[in-house]
């Protein structure tokens, strides 16, 4: 008589079924979007009828999409860069001086995640645009920097937790000034954390709706917001094509970052 199978057995039917359902729900929507993007019909339809690239042409021809894409890129790169400029030193200070610094500090850096994004977006609108009177792009940049800051601090902090700070002291004792030591000794050893933080922050910023919807203004929009307003007026598959482009771009950015910076030449 066969022993009852453990639920941890790789070939357990329940496990296989659960895995299949997860894949179905993860990939299903993507298949529909891809299908619709290449369809020939004038409305979102699945399964696609006919094959054409006309909705891609339509997307590229649309100046609003082009302009919002540029804004999205500026905001995603700028905001992520800003968040890294703040997040790397913050994460460093918090792991290096963990004993001396108050615990509340690390909680403060996660706050933006805890506040509902709608509320955060509205308060940023009040603060950045109404009170400070910042131009739309500047407000978007700051808003997105704040949005992704918790991710950068957390991810880089996790990577620093594995770093042995006595290596930093060793470098200093060998004659390397502190700031230079940070660049030559600390940074190379948390590189994978910085890259992961960049990718995570960049994608979060690129796909953000709830903050951007408050901070975009007349004539300036990010791509997700532009898609949203397009769908309110038109029902054709252009949005599907734009979504496909956005996905391809995201994957391309991740791959490029991983290729250029992430290749590990050493084993750790």
């Amino acid at each position: 008589m066969a022993a009852p199978r453990s639920p941890l057995d790789r070939t357990h039917p329940g496990l296989i079924a659960a895995t299949a359902v997860v894949y179905l729900f993860l990939l299903g929507p993507l298949v529909i979007v891809f299908g619709a993007a290449f369809s020939n019909t004038t409305f979102l339809a699945f399964p696609p009828q006919g094959l054409s690239l006309r909705w891609f042409e339509n997307a590229f021809a649309n100046s609003a999409f082009r302009a919002s894409f540029v804004t999205s890129m500026q905001v995603a790169f700028g905001g992520t860069g800003l968040a890294l400029l703040l997040g790397v030193p913050a994460a460093y200070a918090m792991s290096r001086y963990r004993v001396q610094l108050p615990k509340a500090l690390s909680v403060m850096f996660v706050l933006p995640i805890l506040i509902p994004e709608i509320v955060a977006g509205f308060s940023m609108l009040r603060f950045l645009q109404v009170s400070l009177g910042l131009p739309v792009v500047a407000a978007l940049l700051l808003g997105h920097a704040l949005l992704v800051l918790p991710y950068t601090v957390r991810v880089i902090g996790a990577s620093l937790a594995a770093f042995d700070f006595s290596a930093e002291e060793a470098a200093i004792s060998l004659g390397s000034p502190p700031l230079k030591t940070f660049v030559t000794i600390v940074l190379p050893n948390i590189r994978s954390g910085v890259i992961a933080a960049f990718v995570l922050a960049f994608i979060t910023s690129l796909n953000d709706v709830s903050i951007s919807v408050f901070l975009t203004g007349p004539g300036v929009s990010t791509l997700p917001i532009q898609i949203l307003s397009y769908v309110e007026q038109f029902f054709d598959p252009t949005v599907a094509s734009v979504s496909v482009l956005l996905m391809v771009l995201t994957v391309a950015v991740m791959a490029a970052v991983e290729r250029t910076l992430g290749l590990t030449t050493f084993t750790k």
């Binding site: 004792s173 390397s176 750790k268």
Partner: peptide, 16 residues
């Protein structure tokens, strides 16, 4: 970094 001292640490502190 200007003291010119050679230090050997308990956990080696090599640059990985």
């Amino acid at each position: 970094h200007r003291r010119d001292i050679g230090l050997v640490f308990q956990n080696y502190a090599l640059f990985p």
